Amino acid sequence: MADNLVGKSQQDGIPGVYGGNDVNGNGVVGETNGSGHGVFGQSHTGNGVVGRGWAFGARGVVGIFDDVEQSPPSSSHFVVAASAGVWGATANVAAVDTDPQLKLKTAAGVVGEVSLPGHGFGYGVLGLGHKDEGVVGWSEEGVGGSFIAFKGPGITAKSQERGQIRLVPREVAFGADPQGNPRPKLPKFAESGEMTMVTKDGKCSLWLCVKSWRAGGGVVPQTDARWAEVKLGAAFNGETPS
């Protein structure tokens, strides 16, 4: 890398640093081999760092954590490349630590945190949607989202016109209980508190996991999860237009 440069502008409308395009297609490259920041943006009245992508599938800002030098992760989970204002990805080869107090893994593609102690309150992550969801969580092998609170509610859901929470019914195979009543075939690997809504012949039923599965070993057999149906009252038609 060339000698360190400091970009500072004393005039409105004149950038402190302007990156055009190098042979690799990079406008600005920030690199550090010490404890500093590769790129640091600070502003008293505007935005510290602004990134903008012009084409579909492009990202305004790309942040990647890698504990090995390799090419950035691709969008292999998406059939079409995902467009994003901010794209955060992590690719860990070494084992990920778990915070002893929060009991959470200490690696994430994007982390949002309210600094404490502070002078007010704010959100760790705020998602605003117009016609789609404000926040979507998706997982290939785990749960789509996990919410933990020490003192307040784990989830606060509000809606002025629709249901506060929606469970998307899923089609499952059905068997029968010892009395011959229809019973859905639900997962044997589940944790107590999980809830699912299933559908059969256009009718839905709601089920709650009341006992977690436990792995076996040696002479101890595996214990499968146990489910109980949540009994519902009589159905009736909605009246409001929303």
Rank of each mutant, 00 (worst) to 15 (best):
residue 67 D to T: 03
residue 68 V to C: 07
residue 69 E to S: 04
residue 70 Q to L: 02
residue 73 P to R: 01
residue 75 S to I: 09
residue 75 S to K: 10
residue 77 H to I: 01
residue 77 H to S: 05
residue 78 F to H: 13
residue 79 V to Y: 09
residue 79 V to C: 00
residue 80 V to K: 12
residue 81 A to C: 08
residue 86 V to G: 09
residue 87 W to C: 02
residue 88 G to S: 02
residue 89 A to Q: 12
residue 89 A to K: 07
residue 90 T to W: 12
residue 93 V to K: 13
residue 94 A to Q: 03
residue 94 A to M: 00
residue 95 A to S: 12
residue 98 T to W: 00
residue 98 T to F: 00
residue 100 P to E: 00
residue 101 Q to D: 06
residue 103 K to W: 11
residue 107 A to W: 02
residue 109 G to M: 01
residue 110 V to R: 13
residue 113 E to P: 01
residue 113 E to R: 06
residue 114 V to L: 08
residue 116 L to S: 12
residue 116 L to T: 14
residue 117 P to S: 01
residue 118 G to C: 04
residue 118 G to N: 10
residue 120 G to S: 13
residue 122 G to M: 03
residue 124 G to I: 05
residue 127 G to F: 08
residue 128 L to Q: 11
residue 129 G to M: 02
residue 130 H to K: 15
residue 133 E to W: 07
residue 134 G to P: 09
residue 135 V to S: 03
residue 135 V to Q: 12
residue 136 V to G: 08
residue 137 G to K: 02
residue 138 W to A: 02
residue 138 W to R: 15
residue 140 E to A: 10
residue 142 G to C: 12
residue 147 F to K: 15
residue 147 F to Y: 15
residue 148 I to R: 13
residue 151 K to C: 13
residue 152 G to S: 13
residue 152 G to F: 09
residue 155 I to L: 11
residue 162 R to L: 07
residue 163 G to C: 11
residue 163 G to P: 09
residue 165 I to A: 04
residue 168 V to E: 11
residue 172 V to C: 01
residue 172 V to A: 06
residue 173 A to F: 15
residue 173 A to V: 05
residue 177 D to Y: 02
residue 177 D to Q: 10
residue 177 D to P: 06
residue 182 P to V: 02
residue 182 P to N: 00
residue 187 P to N: 04
residue 187 P to T: 04
residue 188 K to P: 03
residue 188 K to Y: 08
residue 189 F to C: 03
residue 189 F to V: 08
residue 189 F to K: 10
residue 190 A to T: 02
residue 190 A to L: 00
residue 192 S to C: 08
residue 193 G to I: 00
residue 194 E to H: 04
